[in-house]
Every structure is written in C-alpha cells, then in structure tokens.
Design a protein around this nucleic acid. Sequence first.
DNA 1: AATAATCTGAATCGTTAGGTACAGATGTCG
DNA 2: CGACATCTGTACCTAACGATTCAGATTATT
Lengths: 217, 217
Amino acid sequence: MAKKTDNPKMGRPRGFDTTAALDAAMRVFWEKGYEGATLTDLTDAMRINRSSMWAAFGNKEELFKKAFERYLGTYQGYIREALEKPTIREVIESSLRGTVDFLATPGNPKGCLSVHGALAVGDEADPIKQWLIQLRKNGLSVARKRFEQAKKSGDLGEDVDPVALTRYVATLIQGLGVQHASGATKAELMRVVDVALQHMGYLDEGQHPNHKENQAR
Amino acid sequence: MAKKTDNPKMGRPRGFDTTAALDAAMRVFWEKGYEGATLTDLTDAMRINRSSMWAAFGNKEELFKKAFERYLGTYQGYIREALEKPTIREVIESSLRGTVDFLATPGNPKGCLSVHGALAVGDEADPIKQWLIQLRKNGLSVARKRFEQAKKSGDLGEDVDPVALTRYVATLIQGLGVQHASGATKAELMRVVDVALQHMGYLDEGQHPNHKENQAR
DNA sequence: AATAATCTGAATCGTTAGGTACAGATGTCG
DNA sequence: CGACATCTGTACCTAACGATTCAGATTATT
C-alpha cells in the first residue's frame, strides 16, 4: 500500500541539501565513471546514508541521470553561449577555448562526464551508455543547426560542408577531453586549439583554403 | 615448494591456442572496458576454463596487459607505417585515414582499446588506467620525434610548432574513436578527416596559412 | 501534547566479483 | 611401461556489490 500523502510539507523535512548532494555524486561519477563509482563511494562523498539516497533519488541509475542533468546545467553552459555567438568563427573559437578552460578548471576531475561516464562498460551499465550516446547525438544535432544556419546566411563559404564541420569540431572537443585525461596541461591543450584555429583562418575571409588565390590574413 | 621444472616440454601440453585465447579476451576488453569485462565474460569468450586462464596468464590485470600488447601488434601497425611515410603531409593523412579504416573495420568493437580500456574507472582498476595513460604518452612521444625531424629537415615550415601539431593529430585520432563509439558511420568519420586535411593544405606548399600572400593550391 | 509523516542509520538480503584448492584427466619422457 | 609434470573442470572461498528492510529519531500539522 504505502500510499503517499497529498501534503508534502508534512513529516520530518530532509536533513540535507539535495543539490549539494547531487554535486558531490556528480564529481564521483565524473572521476570514476558510472560503473567504477560504488554506492559507498557515492554516499560517502554525499555525506548521506544509503537509504537517504535511496529515498531521495531512486537508485544508482536515476542518481546518475539526475547528476548528469545537473552537470549539464552547471558546466556545459559555455557551449550554449558559444553557439549564440554572431559568427561561426566565434562559435568555434569560443567552444574550443571554452572547452580548454572548462577542462583545466582547478578542482575539476579529468575529462568530461558525457564521455567519461560510460564509454565502454559491462552489460549492467549498458542502458546508461546508450542514454549518454543519445544525449551526445542530441548535442551534436543542436550544434549542427547553428552551422547550417551559418551556411544559409552566407557566414560559411559555398564549398564548406556544415555537417562535416560540426562533427569536426565535436571530434576536437571530445579529443581534448581524452588528451586532458591523458595528462595534457592547459597550455598544451590550448596549443592544440591554436593549431586548429590557425587552420581555420579561412573562416575570417569567407573563403576556402583550397580556393584559388585565397589570401589568408 | 611447488618448484618449477627446467624442462617446459614436460607434462601435459596446453589444450588451447594461447594467442587465439588472447584475441578473444582482447575483444571482450575492447567492448566492455577493463572493469566492465567480467572473468566469466572473458573465459566464456576464450572458451577456456577459469583455472586454465589463471595458469596461462596470471590474473585479470596480467591478462589485460598481454591482450593489449597483442592489440598493439595486431591493430596498431598502421600508425607505425604512417610514421614512416616520407612527408609529414603523408604521415598525417595516412594516420587519420588509417584510423577511420581501422575503426570502421566490420566486426571490430567500437572505439580503440587504448582509450576505451580504462578511461574513468574505480579504485581497483586505477593501476590499469595509469598504465594506459603512460602508454599513450609514449606513443605521443614517438610521433613527436617524427614531427620534430620533419621540422629540422624543412618539411615543416618555420612557423609551425611540431609539438603542438603532433598533439593536434593525436587529439583528432582520439576524438574519432569517441565519435565512432557515439554512432558515427565510416563516411561521417571520413568527412571529418577530409575537413582536417583540407585545413592543412598549407603542408603541401611548405607555407603557413597565416603567412602573407599564401596561395593554396 | 498527540499524531502522522518522513527521515536516518544499522543490519541484512541475494548476487556476483575475482581468486583458489583439489582431484582426476592427459600428455611427455626416461 | 610407468613415473611425473602439467592441464582441466568442479566446487568453493572471501569480499564487495547494489538493493532493501525496519526500528527509532525527528519534525510539521492538528
């Protein structure tokens, strides 16, 4: 039976801050991945009892999803901001440099939760892996719209494939996360971004590097 | 006591092919990652008994390391070959296209074992994670030597930073692995490589895109 | 103050993990 | 042939996993 009351104000109120607890869980998942993070790891970090976690968040899977949503809200705002920049050149530069700033923020775990959360996992964690894949696809889709709009508005040259360019930038961003997790410093990551941006100098001119008589700078 | 004999030919010979078993283990680790791969998963795939595995390979950690070495020998030859190409342009094109071919080979698990094996893991698998990080660093170091040599020989322009360029290519390669694991098709991956190579057209000219009067093609 | 609802902490569940022990099977070599 | 080293399969060990129960503490409403 265990029927729920209509009045949620009744009874003993929660003794901990749910968002603070979610933040703590998020960091553990970020460091150890979904299946590497033990319930004990999580509750220790959240400074919460096992059953309190259970009552507040459901189970490990639900906890991860909620922590991930908080991660998106807290840490991935720079991507949304980057996509709103007026020119595609600024969109790319802002998202790449933003990624490096984000990754190298002192105190942040290595890499990004979207990739590190569940890249290759056992059967039990497969639903979470699939869920993350879908979210990454959605993110790519949002970015692609911005690039396609730039193509229509003439911000991107005639011979530029906006879909491929979107995925190229996404590939770089995800690669930066792996590099970071492999021990690259902020300066080294930023040098990678410099190289990528130098290569894309043609965006400033609205011309393609393979065009004849393309003058850069 | 259990002293070992001097003659390894004595006693009952092994009833299975060790390299075939290693191949099977490699694939399981590749699909599920180090901590996602269960001993039962492994021995089932290897068609071997638990104690046979134990006797032949030591423990899970040793099995992974041996499987990974086999992986390097079997699947990462294209990187070595790419680094031997005469020009740096060919080195880059060959390693990027080789990566796509490798990733999209039918029957291969998603991504690459070096990254997918243990990116973010729990405490117990941390030694393997560190081991893989070190191997990735070593690989980067080998590639860097090739790029620095190209700089000295004049194959790379004066204003190109060979160290940064090396890491840029590595970032792309690892990003391609993540993209593949996120569901990108071979064609989509190859389009990303096309974009990257178009950006690097300056390599054919020995000039930098930010140079004045740089004429591409 | 009495009541009802909720939270908290410890104890416990069944399952599975990696790792072993041991008896019997199977082959090699003197 | 016969002794012996090594492999194979079953059964089992301990520890840790995620998940759950339940008595008691705590607090808002009545």
